[in-house]
Design a protein around this nucleic acid. Structure first.
Lengths: 331, 331
DNA sequence: CTGAAAGCGCTTACAG
DNA sequence: CTGAAAGCGCTTACAG
């Protein structure tokens, strides 16, 4: 392995000068600079990151902790974070917390020991407790970790988009399948939907609206969907909005089982825009989180010279209208 | 940050002794050892990885390069690799090659600069060229990278299991939708299926077998499935085996469109056991890769003291028989 | 504008 | 069995 010494010898300068050239220190004369750069290229010199880290107390590394990388949403996030970090010449260390706060704490310690420039944490549980103490900058993404500032999709505004979408399609009997109200995401999505719908429907006496709380999974969507759709056609909802795509897809199946045509007799809308949303028949209308933008914000926040933000940051969502939602049937 | 010096002072020993205790060097007397350990605990001392790396030329890090972490299979693999590495007190640096050999080369350089103990590479393209030179041990996983030894599922044996499964269910008119024969995986899966079927059917004059080459995606499965199933019931295949779950699911859809009942009138089998395989109706019979074992092998191979293996290693696959395959209808 | 030197925190022969 | 010392490759005041 080549070192700064080798480069210095070859270029006929001191190691200090080589170091200055490498760090783009402008006090080096162009002539010398070129000589050094040539030597670097000739020798195929690669700086030793460990030595650099030992001096500077920081490696060109970002740590990322997610509950489970095999969850497609977190995988998508990880991919975009890695891409953004790579653009800024940083590598990403990945750790899974397995949804366990203890594992999470250990993983964070392990990451911190590598002296990263910053840490991105998707909280393992709602607002996990934090025991670590560090000056390494940390941001929470998607789910808050401790008291660290959060960067996430604007769940509330996204759900409001769904409410508008359904209202504008003429639906007046609407059901909302919420997520667990013990989770921040579950609460925010529900609030966004309800608030907006209430605003819109204030003057409309024909409006019928019901909420059923569930889990975020397929089974929950099937259960609740079956209950909602077992009523007579004149009474049951003409539209179901769900807090997750899984729930929505569960409801979609039940509708098919019951012979209720989507979207003619029933509109269904999900949230998250998972890959599957685009593969079911009919394709599912859903709200897409802009993971590219979330990732970019997180990386830039950590790598910028500016002080850490003092407020949470929310990224706009996009409503992807597809085949599963349509205008209410005219009677 | 505490250093070995602090620990040494507190324990009343030299830094060398502290270092020896930390590296479990058995030449330290138990009494001293305990004093050092106590001091470590009291001070909350954490070794500086960069300093250690500078001396030993190796960090407790494993590098992982995948084409695309948002591909569920690679995400699963990454998760298991991270878990196994964590067990051995190593962190994982993740990089995406984006299926581009140039990006791949750059990512590998970046990873190597961090002085990892080893590199796990899922090749970006079939047998990508290698320009890098390093003594860091490298293994290919799933798709070969350069000439490095491969650890992967036994695609051939897995496909043979499918052939047996269908034959034993009594199928004698069988179609195989292959993957691109330009890819190693495509070739191996096809070979495994054909060879085994030929063995089984040698004595059976009623056997009718056809192969159609396609891509690994849904569209390909739909296209080819439609062609295969457009014949009269007495002539068309009673079973379709596909080289991927996507193809199989595409065929499943076509069968539903054509009013052909699965599995009564047609059996369909996929490969890979993706999450979706368990979500379609009926659930898809498929071959599951043991990513836990693949991950374990890869990590252990890199971290073991033993010299790198000189042969490729294949991990057994499992046939998951589900609703989409059944005994051939008795006429 | 350039160079010589100190030192980051650790490990490892080596001497005792 | 333990300690003193050298040195890994780099960066950064400091002197010139």
């Amino acid at each position: 392995m080549k070192t700064v010494r080798d480069v210095a010898t070859k270029a006929g300068v001191s190691v200090g000068t080589v170091s200055k050239v490498l760090s783009n220190n402008p006090t080096v004369k162009p002539a010398l600079r070129d000589r050094v750069l040539t030597a670097v290229a000739d020798l195929g010199y690669k700086p030793n990151m460990a030595a650099r880290a030992l001096r500077t107390n920081r490696l060109n590394i970002l740590g990322l902790v997610v509950p489970d990388i095999s969850n497609p949403f977190f995988a998508q996030l990880a991919k975009n974070i890695e891409a953004e970090a790579a653009q800024q010449a940083h590598m990403v260390m990945l750790a899974n917390s397995d949804d366990d706060p203890d594992v999470e704490a250990r993983q964070i310690e392990g990451l911190l020991a590598q002296m990263p420039k910053g840490l991105i944490v998707v909280g393992s549980v709602d607002q996990s407790k934090v025991s670590i103490q560090t000056e390494v900058p940390i941001v929470s993404v998607d789910r808050r970790y401790g008291d660290y500032k959060l960067i996430s999709a604007d769940h509330e505004a996204g759900s409001a988009l769904v409410a508008e979408h359904l209202f504008q399609l003429g639906h007046r009997r609407i059901a909302y399948i919420s997520g667990p109200q013990s989770t921040e995401v579950g609460r925010l999505r529900r609030k966004g939907f309800c608030d907006r719908l209430q605003q819109l429907a204030l003057a409309d006496a024909t409006m019928k609206f019901q909420i059923v709380e569930g889990h975020f999974d397929y089974a929950s969507g099937e259960d609740i969907g079956r209950r909602l759709l077992s009523e007579r056609a004149e009474l049951r909802p003409t539209a179901i909005a769900a807090a997750s795509d899984q729930q929505a897809i569960g409801a979609l199946r039940v509708a098919r089982d019951l012979g209720i045509d989507v979207p003619t007799d029933l509109s269904i809308v999900g949230f998250d825009d998972i890959t599957l949303a685009n593969l079911v028949v009919p394709r599912l209308t859903s709200v897409s989180q802009n993971t590219v933008e979330i990732a970019r914000m997180a990386v830039r926040t950590l790598l910028s010279e500016k002080p850490m933000p003092t407020e949470d940051q929310f990224v706009e969502t996009i409503l992807c209208a597809r085949g599963s939602s349509g205008a209410v049937a005219i009677k």
